[in-house]
Design a protein around this nucleic acid. Sequence first.
DNA 1: TACACAGTTGGAATC
DNA 2: CGATTCCAACTGTGT
Length: 552
Amino acid sequence: MATLFWFRNGLRVHDNRALLKALDYDLDEKTSCIRNADKKHSALVYPVYILEPDRLKSGLIGPNRVKYLQVKTCHCREAAVDKSAGDPLSKIPKLCADYKVNKLVFERDTDEYCRGRDENIKELMKKCHVQVETYSGHTLWDLDDIMDRSGGQLTKSYGPFVKLLEKMPQPQNRFPSIPTMQGTLDPHMATDPKYDLPNVEDYLQGKEPTTIHKGGESEGLRRLDNYLQDTTRTRVFRKPQTSPIDTHPASTTILSPFMKFGSLSCRTFWHRVNEVYKKGQHSAPPESLIGQLYWREFFYSQGEVALLIPWKGYNENKEDEEKFQAWAEGRTRYPWIDAVMHQLIKHGWMHQLARHCVACFLTRGQLFISWEKGAEVFHKYLLDADYNLNNGNWLWLSASAYYTTYFRVYSPTKFPQKYGKSDGAKFIRQFVPEVAKLPDLYIFEPWKAPPSVQKSSNCVLGKDYPHPIMDAENAKAENMEIMRICYEKKVHGNCSPKEYEDHMALFKIVLAKDYNQYGNGASNKAPRKGQINLETAMQQLAKRTQRQRENN
DNA sequence: TACACAGTTGGAATC
DNA sequence: CGATTCCAACTGTGT
């Protein structure tokens, strides 16, 4: 009889408890040692990775991340996998029958979609009389343990969450890599072409990957080694002090893509950093390196109900759609915003603060378009795209949950200058060639450049380079007012249908009255802080519902 | 129950 | 230039 090991995330052979279990090793959970490392194994294990066509469509996932699946994700020949393609619900039973499998093993997933899929698989396996074993491994702690420890009421704030984590036993130590695979895995793996790298050409749709970032387990471990070698940098790491405009090299670790695929174990990361911490004083959460791992843990543990904000982008409004597309493709003509979006599309990675700027711009800052639309774009292009972390951060930035100081808005022109005018300009030149020739003084706001400078820089506004899609200052003042009303009303996504309708009807009036007053393009008008009179709007709403009742 | 207090990473004006 | 203060006043948590 045989075991099927299903790789999904957790694409590694180091610290892989589920894989060791599939290989029938006797693990000491306290010390993370293998008790029977020398044991001769009789059962065969077939490792597989299933390319799911529905999830690899080009509209959902960009070429950079698709290509990542073609990198040797695990660094041992032994971990080569059968790369079947198809829907796991039909594929897994077929593989079980083909290989005469009586046991299926996989690492548990964390997101909604995958958990649902896995429940269906378990049901199916019951019918096929195949035993299913699953193990936690993608997070520092088993999420169920965190929930138990919190008494079922998990905090929505990071600080108390870390306090809770620090009361837990330390994250489990790393399991050793697989000691010897001889006679255990499918003996034909070395020669059988079905164990070659997966062919992802069909999913690239002719688009070539453009990222500079490499993938794979070896690369992840090498990057970690390399970063931790500078022990001072590791110990003093404070995220807000790192710079979003540094690219060669970046100011952070860029280990997130490896964490997303699980080609680097988060427990390996945790223990290795703590070994460095023993050498002297170090920073602390939320800003420290360990603090970053705890943010990840935080968003994985959360199930959040968002504040109800009347975002645009849900209805088929042509103007909104155009603005959204301009943002998504880096055509807002705010060079800093566009540069970051181009970095996303080209490289699949941006610094956290750069993500903040463009997310704020799309939502509560300027365009007031739904964070869900933005999250889709991020999910498509980010190498580290992860459902929980991506959505959690978008909720945060749009001030729909967790973060409430909505009046703190990133300036699309001033923010990149904080890191030095010339360095900020250098970043923009890398990604927005149209404005590259403008001097540092005007590159953040090309429309402010005198005509002679525009001409000599080959960047004449309205000719070589379009005007911005809207005036950022005006939009900000207007949006902040809508946000203020939302916070005043405090209606959340879990409200009753009646509350929902009233809330949205109110904003229909508010928006019709005060929105839509702005012309296109940047203007010289002073920022307007026109307060929307909520009371008047409410009275109008009452009158309207009264009229509707009478008509009925 | 009431109240104090902290909260990953803003911007503009002022000294 | 770097540091400090105000903006307007939110939520979740702890006492």
